[in-house]
Every structure is written in structure tokens, then in C-alpha cells.
């Protein structure tokens, strides 16, 4: 059972949730859904990768299950864990009961703590599983993901194999701080999300910050693009464009002149050296 009918359908329904997808994004999301493959989204920070998964969940009216990856993430945090404290209590409470009975009892559903991957597989309603910042996790986690993502099943030795009743729509995001393994990449559809073109970025700013006037949004986007063309340590992303628009609205400014840019540049550039460089390249007066 698929969530979307066509790439156009994806685009319209994502737009309704406030996420403006371009051709590539809409088509790839549609394909991931149609072919039942996980979607690996890669791109610079702040280009709306996580946002895409959330938007898909909203658009498809599906539940979002999120697995945030970090260094040291293990099976017990990603897949499932036995609630051993509760098991201990159960054993103590058993008293005279035969061990066989207790044994069968403590390895049952009641004592199983379901973690995101298992939760996503067991859900019967439409589900979007978001594996966020996959590159932060250790290589072993990738192996774990491989098993879960290719067969959509989890084996709990004491309970048997749990198969997905309904395949979740899987989105993996990565900032490319390390190359994910070829095996994982091969099983996924790949989507590289880059900075959008000027027109789309303007629309994004206008959708996200409705208070901003169109002329200001256009000037803002152009300035951001000029900044991106400089060699900066961290180029401003869409998140920064939106923040900037919000800042300008909050300050009640409706034009983007030198003085305004000068005052609010800190919203967009987060490194001191980038700041200095931008001031020099854009011909702004350095502040005293």
C-alpha cells in the first residue's frame, strides 16, 4: 500500500504542509514510497533534511518514529531491550513457582522495551521512520540498520521473528561527516539536498515567514546567495535565511541596506572569520 499516487501528488501534499519540494525531491520521495526502499537524504546542515521526513509524515497522515543517532548508540537503544528490573521483581515475586513457568513469563511482551526500530516495524498504522544523522552513529549500527531495512524484520531470540505488518517509509539523514558504507547506500535511494535555487528559496522564506514582504524576501535571498559564493567556513543554509527573515520582521525592517546587513549579519554567519570576510567582500564598514 503506497502513500502517494504520483510525484505531483507528493509535491502538492508536501506543499500543503509548508514544505516546498522541487522536482528531484518530489520524484525521489514518490519512488522511495513506490519501490518500498529506504531514502537516504544527504546534504549540508540546515537544508531541511529532517524537515522533509516530518513533512512526509504529516502529508501522508502517518506517525513519525524517530531514531536519533549518536556516537555509542547500540542495539539496546535502537532496537529493543529487556526490562530487567521488572524481570527481577517478577522473579522475586514468583516465590515457589517453578522456574520453567517464570522463565516463560519474564520473556514475554510485557517485559520488552521497544526502541524506535522495533516500534516502527510493529506499528500497523502508516509510519515514517526517521533515522537522523546516521553518520554520527558507529559503523556497527549500520550493520544493524542493514538487517532491519532490507527485510523489515527483527529477531528477538526469546520471542521469535517479528515481521513488519506494514513497511514503514524510512528516511535516513546524513551530514556526510563520514562516508556511509557501500552496502547501506546500495540498499537506499539517494537524495542529495543542496541549497535551493533563488526562486524556490524565496518561496520557502515567504511560506515560512508570511509576515515578510516579497521584495525583502527577494533581496534577502540574493544577499544570501552572494554570501554562499564567498569561500566561507560555514555557508548560510536555508535555516539561516529563515532566521534572518524572522529577525528582520522582528526588528520591523522592510529594506535590506548596508546598515541592516551589518547589524544582523550575526544571524547568518556563525564564525568570526566568516564575519570579517563577508564584511570585507561586501564592502561594509567594519564596526568600531
Amino acid at each position: 500500500m503506497t502513500l502517494f499516487a504520483s510525484p505531483e501528488d507528493v509535491r502538492e501534499r508536501l506543499a500543503a504542509t509548508g514544505y516546498l519540494a522541487d522536482d528531484a525531491i518530489a520524484t525521489t520521495v514518490f519512488l522511495a514510497d513506490a519501490l518500498g526502499k529506504p531514502l537516504l537524504v544527504e546534504g549540508p546542515a540546515g537544508t531541511g533534511k529532517t524537515e522533509l521526513a516530518k513533512a512526509v509524515a504529516t502529508a501522508a497522515d502517518a506517525g513519525l518514529v524517530r531514531l536519533q543517532c549518536y556516537e555509542g548508540l547500540d542495539e539496546a537503544r535502537a532496537l529493543y531491550e529487556w526490562n530487567y528490573r521488572k524481570q527481577l521483581l517478577r522473579i522475586q515475586a514468583a516465590g515457589e513457582q517453578a522456574w520453567e513457568e517464570t522463565h516463560d513469563d519474564i520473556f514475554s511482551e510485557e517485559f520488552l522495551l521497544s526502541r524506535p526500530l522495533l516500534t516502527a516495524i510493529r506499528r500497523t498504522e502508516p509510519t515514517v521512520l526517521l533515522v537522523d544523522e546516521t553518520d554520527k552513529a558507529d559503523v556497527e549500527v549500520e550493520g544493524l540498520l542493514l538487517e532491519v531495512l532490507s527485510d523489515f524484520q527483527v529477531t528477538v531470540p526469546e520471542l521469535g521473528t517479528i515481521e513488519a505488518t506494514r513497511k514503514p517509509f524510512v528516511v535516513l539523514t546524513s551530514n556526510a561527516t563520514r562516508e556511509l558504507s557501500e552496502a547501506l547506500k546500495r540498499r537506499c535511494l539517494f537524495l542529495h539536498v543542496d541549497y535551493p535555487d533563488a526562486e524556490r528559496e524565496k518561496q520557502i522564506v515567504l511560506t515560512r515567514v508570511p509576515e515578510v514582504v516579497e521584495a525583502l524576501a527577494e533581496a534577502l535571498v540574493r544577499t544570501i546567495r552572494t554570501l554562499r559564493a564567498l569561500e566561507l567556513k560555514k555557508a548560510p543554509s536555508i535555516a539561516e535565511s529563515i532566521d534572518w527573515a524572522r529577525t528582520l520582521v522582528a526588528l520591523g525592517l522592510d529594506t535590506l541596506d548596508e546598515a541592516t546587513v551589518q547589524q544582523t549579519l550575526g544571524v547568518v554567519l556563525k564564525h568570526n572569520s566568516d564575519h570579517t570576510r563577508a564584511i570585507k567582500e561586501l564592502g561594509l564598514e567594519p564596526q568600531g
Binding site: A24, T27, T28, L31, A32, L40, E42, G43, A176, E179, E182, K185, R186, C188, L189, F190, L191, H192, D194
Partner: peptide, 8 residues
């Protein structure tokens, strides 16, 4: 692109 390009 989604199916065959796996690196930006």
C-alpha cells in the same frame, strides 16, 4: 539519480 548516484 536516486538509484545510481550515491555520492554528491
Amino acid at each position: 539519480a536516486a538509484a545510481v548516484v550515491k555520492r554528491a
